[in-house]
Amino acid sequence: MKALLLPLFSLILLASCVSPPQSAALLHEMPAQFSDAVLVPDVPFYPQEDYQCGPAALATVLGASQVQVSPDDLVPLVYVPGRQGSFQIEMVAAARSFGRLAYQLPPTLQAMFSEVSRGHPVLVMQNLGLDWYPQWHFAVLKGFDLVQGHVILNSALTENYEVPLATFERTWARADHWAVLVVEPGIMPLSATPERYFNAVVALEGNNPAELSSRAYQSGLERWPGNSSLLMGYGNLLYSQDDLDGAARHYRQTIDFHPDYAPAYNNLAQILLQQSELAQALTLADKAVELGGDFSDNYAGTRQRIQAAIKAQSRQSR
């Protein structure tokens, strides 16, 4: 027994002595913006019942973003009886189904602390056990105190649970640094990148009123006015709302910023076709076909429709 315990102890000591990289850096040289302790106020707390940290953590971040919903209401959306737990992807999907933008943060403590600092708690996944004996868990990061060296979670049965920063980083790193921000559409994740943000907005668009994703596009475009995906995305949203002029304006802006971006020519051509500006429409469709690319079939289709319309018109005028 002795022979077994000694190596075990040294192993454990070794594991605990090595500080995880982000914590080590943060505690070694504390960034000025994180030097004050932060605790987001008014974050709801739902002590979880057996295995139901998923619904509890999700209800917590939804509550903090002004969606009042109880963990019990979320069980049918995220709980998986056969696994006695919840999947990450369904947590994100369920947050969206309540009209909230769910954005996966980059894998840094700083990205989370920045959001917490401005009042947004962050949904995190941890592996509380080890890689070979995982204990997957969802919790909500709602505060930190780098002087004391801990973070503050609402987790399982404990509200304001203080965890040493290094311990938290280890458990969080073992779950691939998974952290998701859940906010009202229109609020921009501080660390967002345009493509990932666009994908989050399109996902939101799926099952929600256009008004919500419209706000998300607008604030995205405030930050990145020339981004082709966001300009096109917002144009398409307006198009689906039958706002042809608004859509055309955004497709034109896309072309201004990205003269080689074929989808913008194609979609603008479609609008001009619907507005019976056939000559202009054909020029644009030709351009899209000429540029080619991933959606060539669409471009060819648009051009065919325009050509057909031109033929029909000349037949009529004859």
């Binding site: 666009f198 669409n298 060819a300």
Partner: peptide, 16 residues
């Protein structure tokens, strides 16, 4: 149904 517009699902899939 009568448009060949490049929609947001296509755009998102392409970039993702």
């Amino acid at each position: 149904a009568t448009a060949d517009i490049v929609d947001n699902k296509q755009l998102a899939m392409q970039s993702e």
